[in-house]
Design a protein around this nucleic acid. Structure first.
Lengths: 332, 332
DNA sequence: GCAAGATTGGCAATCGTTTTCCAGGAGGTC
DNA sequence: GACCTCCTGGAAAACGATTGCCAATCTTGC
């Protein structure tokens, strides 16, 4: 393993000079020495030992990204956006997948803290369990106390900089748009009752219906994934329009209806939320609420990384969803 | 920032003892001291400084994963499988996305080397450029010379342990299956000419057709992604069956046909390769060649991590693809 | 030609662990 | 009771960088 000292010796300069040429930057090094060092490094195939560098500098060039499930296009898009920013800043990304286990989320924050990552990005809905939220927050506070930066994509419940999707507003807009098509009897595939994202979307949707003087929709709970949508759809009775609180659930619902010979949109309209990329080639094209997922991931990382004075209020950036009507919904 | 020394002092023991209790493990520590140390660590909220640990140990607990594009379900599935193994082994995963730029792939190997990651997993097709391959290999060799472990998913061109999909065989099987449906005039959406995965699949497919005494298919090149499939499909003339060398291209092709009012499978049959998860809900369901992507990712990481004697032959594990006929293809 | 200031190079302390070696005490055998 | 082994705890030397400080050299203005 070739070290900086080897390079320095080989180039006939001091350790300090070699370091300044290859890594540090505030100080100038004369052209001739600089060339010698660079050549030596090249010849020897020197690669900085980042662990040593991190230790000496007290800060790493890694950021931690916590997602629920990388194979979910929602998180893949967020991750992709964040990674773009990371690359621009010359940083690497460490990814942790919780598979929706809050305990694992807490444990990963601790691990990422141990890694002394520069920033942690938490994505995915918070859950409505005060005990879990408190412990997660404790772990985050411990991390931030020693200079760690944190940002979230989702609900602003952790006292961190946050990019928050307008879940309630988007769902309300969607409800109004669907009501505008003449629908009056709705069902909502509502996901798990403890998932705040799901709650907000349900609340926004039903709230808007109530404002319009329409009857409350049928609520069917289930998991927040494709299969949750599939099974929940089977329990829908007597609705002309089904709103699944996220797109993958809507995809499951479409499959359920197809399997049972129920035509979309002729027999029932279906709408989702998020506008994940894979919707693009679905038949029928899915009505949904578009969120700029990659941008949200990118923006969250920017928030985490931006230098700011301490002890400030956490910044919360709201991003609005945009209703996109497509073929899966039609007028009654 | 609370250090191990703080913990030791607080517990009234030496640094060595604290280290042995909290991290190392070969040596015993008496129950009473052990308890004291653990309690102190707990109270102070101690988090191991992994950078220091890595430096001292000379080995990290991180593995590096190089993919082309995380939002491509193919890579997401591979990554997911690999991450499962990593989690079992208590390791973190650093993800690098090259966006199909070979230079970036080489650069990331260098960066991951600098990070002293325990192992590097390279996924995605190699390209048919000897100069690039040589430089990548040099970089990998540099990494391995100092104890780095490497495994690939794809072609075994880098002298590393490799999990290789049976591209040619799978495509040949597919060709025979499609010919069995009575198709005789084929087109192949062949992807970029320099991508070896694409080459192999094209070769396997056309080879099998030749063996059957069928005319050579029309070859249309393009990019290896959804849009590549979309545009390539438009150039297909006079074929009853179109084989796209991967699923996302096939999805693009389906969209192209749909946009042009060409019905699948009534007017033309379409097949893909990989069996990515998102196919599940496509209409029509896509005929493809199934690869156990998550398992392949997992297996590759296992190969990289398994302790083995040095200077052995690289292991190459072949995984066969399985033809899955679905609705997008039908007898002529 | 000289003092003041600006550059540039090097020494050595430091970051937070792990781990080798050493010492002292407990327990067993003759 | 002497001797040997085994076990446990601590002191201190790595690990490979960064960086504050000092010294030497080079400019520059007068």
């Amino acid at each position: 393993m070739v070290t900086l000292e080897d390079v320095a010796r080989h180039a006939g300069v001091s350790l300090a000079t070699a370091s300044r040429v290859l890594n540090g930057s505030t100080r100038q090094v004369g052209a001739s020495l600089r060339a010698k060092v660079e050549q030596a490094a090249q010849q020897l195939g020197y690669r900085t030992n980042v662990a040593a560098q991190t230790l000496a500098r007290g800060a790493s060039n890694v950021i931690g990204l916590v997602v629920h499930d990388l194979t979910d296009p929602y998180f893949a898009a967020l991750a992709d956006g964040a990674m773009r920013v990371a690359e621009d800043q010359g940083m690497m990304v460490m990814v942790a997948t919780t598979h929706r286990d809050p305990e694992r989320e807490i444990a990963y924050v601790a691990t990422l803290n141990a890694q002394r990552v520069r920033a942690v990005l938490l994505s995915g809905s918070r859950i409505a369990d005060p005990a879990v939220t408190r412990r997660l927050r404790e772990e985050l506070d411990r991390y931030r106390q020693t200079g760690g930066r944190v940002a979230c994509v989702g609900q602003a419940l952790l006292g961190t900089d946050t990019v928050t999707p307008g879940n309630a507003e988007g769902a309300a807009d969607l409800a109004r748009a669907l009501a505008g098509l003449g629908h009056r009897r709705f069902a909502v595939l509502a996901g798990p009752p403890w998932l705040i994202t799901a709650q907000d979307r349900v609340a926004g949707f039903t709230g808007a219906l109530a404002e319009l003087g329409l009857p409350a929709p049928q609520l069917v709970h289930g998991t927040f994934d494709r299969d949750g949508g599939y099974t929940a759809a089977a329990e829908v009775t007597d609705a002309t329009c089904v709103f699944a609180v996220n797109d993958v659930m809507a995809v499951g619902a479409l499959a359920s209806f197809r399997d049972r010979g129920i035509r979309v949109p002729q027999d029932v309209s279906v709408a989702g939320f998020d506008d994940i990329a894979t919707l693009r080639d679905l038949v029928p094209a899915l009505t949904t609420v578009r969120l700029p997922l990659a941008d949200m991931g990118a923006r969250a990382l920017e928030l985490a990384l931006e230098a700011v004075e301490e002890a400030r209020e956490p910044r919360v950036e709201r991003v609005a969803g945009e209703v996109v009507l497509r073929e899966s919904t039609r007028p009654v």
